[in-house]
Design a protein around this nucleic acid. Structure first.
Length: 204
DNA sequence: ATGCCGATGTCCT
DNA sequence: GGACATCGGCATC
């Protein structure tokens, strides 16, 4: 597998990056435990002009500072006091764009993912939803600011590339507070993946 | 299948 | 004090 290079993240169009992250592989190797999953759902957050973004209006806090930093770093923050949500910082420095990874299809280290998430058997909930993604991969806020080309945490390409017909675009989840920006088509999913988050999922 | 609820760090008013 | 890029469990239909 080939790690995504700096130039992949250092681009101006966060929507293109969010779309292209579909099918890529997110890998963690913390404490010698290797786990990996294929990204099947992403959301773009377009920084200062996006009401749904933590950086809306150019807001800078200790938490959001990494979004203003180097493209290709991890922005991990705590949501609702419980869930660690994993994002990829994009665009050049000082432009706080990011892509939230909302779901993965588990590829490697499934027994360790089960241990981390307290499940007995793998099912479609294992990598579904941004909180579950981080739990399965062992990602916590201590890894915010980490380079995504590091040995312990990176995104790679293994040759899988979804066709345009397999990709759907929808509004983002859980951003109703963002007014009109909640309607923007900034969420990208692999249509047929059972791991994609959202309301209706029947099979197990 | 749908809905309510509790958990609870960070940021804002 | 309240809202928030959520989740899982339980109650109810």
């Amino acid at each position: 597998m080939e790690k995504l290079a700096y130039d992949f993240y250092n681009r101006a169009d966060v929507l293109t990056i969010a779309r292209e992250l579909l099918g890529k592989v997110l890998v963690t190797q913390f404490n010698g435990i290797a786990t990996a999953g294929r990204i099947v759902e992403t959301e773009a957050y377009a920084g200062e002009n996006d009401r749904a973004s933590h950086a809306y209006g150019g807001r800078r806090t200790a938490r959001t500072e990494v979004m203003y930093g180097r493209p290709g770093t991890a922005y991990v923050y705590l949501c609702y006091g419980i869930h660690h949500l994993f994002n990829v910082v994009t665009n050049r420095e000082e432009v706080p764009h990011a892509v939230l990874v909302r779901a993965i299809a588990p590829l490697q280290g499934i027994p360790d993912m089960l241990l981390r998430t307290g499940r007995a058997k793998p099912d479609h909930s294992l990598g579904r939803g941004p909180g579950n993604v981080s739990r399965a991969l062992g990602i916590t806020t201590r890894y915010t600011g980490w380079n995504l080309a590091s040995r312990e945490m990176f995104i790679a390409q293994d040759g899988f590339a979804p066709a345009a017909a397999e990709v759907a675009v929808t509004p983002r989840i859980g951003v109703n507070y963002a007014g009109e920006d909640a309607l923007l088509p900034y969420r990208f999913i692999l249509k047929d993946s059972p791991y994609v988050s959202g309301k209706k999922q029947v099979r197990s």
